[in-house]
Design a protein around this nucleic acid. Sequence first.
RNA 1: GCGCCCGUAGCUCAGUCGGAUAGAGCACCGGUUUCCUAAACCGGGGGUCGCAGGUUCGAGUCCUGCCGGGCGCGCCA
Length: 581
Amino acid sequence: MILDAALRRAITTTLGDDYRDTDPLIRPSQRPQLGDFQANAAMSLGKQIGTDPRRLAQQIAEAVTRELSAIAEPPEVAGPGFINIRLKPEALAEMLTAVDTAALGITPDPDTRPIAIDLCGVNIAKQMHVGHLRSTIIGDALARILERRGRRVHRENHLGDWGLTIAMVLRELRASKADLDALVLDDLDAAYRRAQHQCARDTNADAAAKEVLVALQQGDADVRRDWQKIIDVTMQAVYESFDLLGVKLGPENNRPESSYRDQLPEVVDAFIQAGLAQEDQGALIIRFDDRDRPLIIRKSDGGYLYSTTDLAAVRYRVQQLDASRVIYVVDARQRDHFRDVFDAVRRIGWDLLADGTRAQLVHVPFGAVLGADRSPLKTRSGENVPLATLLKKAIERGALEVKKRAADPAAPTHGLDPRQLDQIGRAVGIGAVKYADLSSDLVRDYLFNLDRMIAFEGNTGPYLQYAHARVCSIFAKANVDPQEVGDAGFVLKDGSERQLALLLLRYAGVVADTARTLEPHRLCTFLYDLANAYSSFYERCPVLKAQSEPLRRSRLRLCGLVRRVLADGLDLLGIEAPQRM
RNA sequence: GCGCCCGUAGCUCAGUCGGAUAGAGCACCGGUUUCCUAAACCGGGGGUCGCAGGUUCGAGUCCUGCCGGGCGCGCCA
């Protein structure tokens, strides 16, 4: 922005053209009493050149004073060489006006190539559980953030619909003569577990399962029909969960493992041809110089593994989808696996895009969801908690809280239709779960605690939704359409108004940072700061009863902008923002 | 054994490319409502940033070693 350019010029003026590309390191001020922004470059520069950083800061500050005089107070040097800058109120108002557009200041990513995100990854014949929850929520949020900057995103649901485990289930169903037309997911889930058990103990069952697999792979009509049925049953429940979660996923995002099956021999061949694969104990492996662990791409019985499919999938995403970033939102335990797969891909050159550049292959690892006992969340019987159960609980809880509040005659939700309240409750419950999932560093394990995540205090989804609802309430009270606050001039006198304005200016940058780092908690932290700043403003500054009409209109417009940024930010996280709650 | 990740207040977590006196929330203590949603706001106490070295004008952040916890390591996905 303006400050950055001005500081860059000041650095060049002071130190010469060699320093033209020096980043002035402008950051929001850590101490609002000292300024709005701070430039940190003088200290490291002073070290590089061997001059006193404080004196250098002084020189840079002087060089920039005149240029900034229209928009800022004279910069002040403090501490070991910080340059503190405070904007003049009119300049701040002008900048705020500039971001008060439909795009909220967000500019399109200069890179316009598509992106592929591997997310969800459900397994056929199994219930979705908490692991799928994280991959789905995080993947969808990242997709929304990247799309917001104009990128085309392919959400790739890499369904586990192939391989021995599926064949084991099919064998089990046939052995127990199950009526596949009457099948529901619970039956399938049970069959899945029985099948695992049987085949582990009974070599006959295992052999039979392998026969089913061969039949499936050879396109046996009966087996294929049954196979399709269990896919349909599983996916029906999956789509219901997608609907409850409000993620932008559907049948069009399915790219199952089976869709790569014809390519597997060719994938392996390519590695052999390139001299990158070797036989070892009957299996075909890829070795790496810097690790003992090889990547097995073909079993000694000639079968393929998930690593083979993953190699085919990366190639497809780079070469067919033309994705310049291929993102995997998968459990952190698979770090080593993706490291190996990506390295193999780079070696054979399948990360090469049509334009000659290399695609960025990135694994976004996330931690486990832990129960109250700090071990991965399980039911009493020791099984994974089904996603449907968990979502149902969250929704019930959200509805309970919303209805409790609506009982108060003074509440804006009082007297609403119970179905409307349920809808709001759903948004609150689901929003709480999603926000809890996204708001801390993804790689850390997190404690699933419904009480905490649905609390309306602290860094939670409901708190942000509440802040948004309060803004909406002002507009409802004023009987003004939030879209039509017009072009009133911003009057930013109160400290809380300034803070709000400074935060709003940062939104576009935060979205860009989040898109770059693929760390949604950055956006969460920002939105929480914004909601906090709004709450302070709300306490201090009457809007509808402001002392003067210009002030009233300024504050109304400020509220409108806050509302849009909150709603937009929540939308990027895949969280609904009800007007009332 | 080898490798990866994590360790910040009693609890749950932030901390940007190495920058000022390490910040929030919960819990605890105190205050605020004739006023737009008190599901809120304002204030207070609470820290050996796992430990020890090192690099640096400056380290929660970078390097080395150690301690503690988690996870992964050839034909499951």
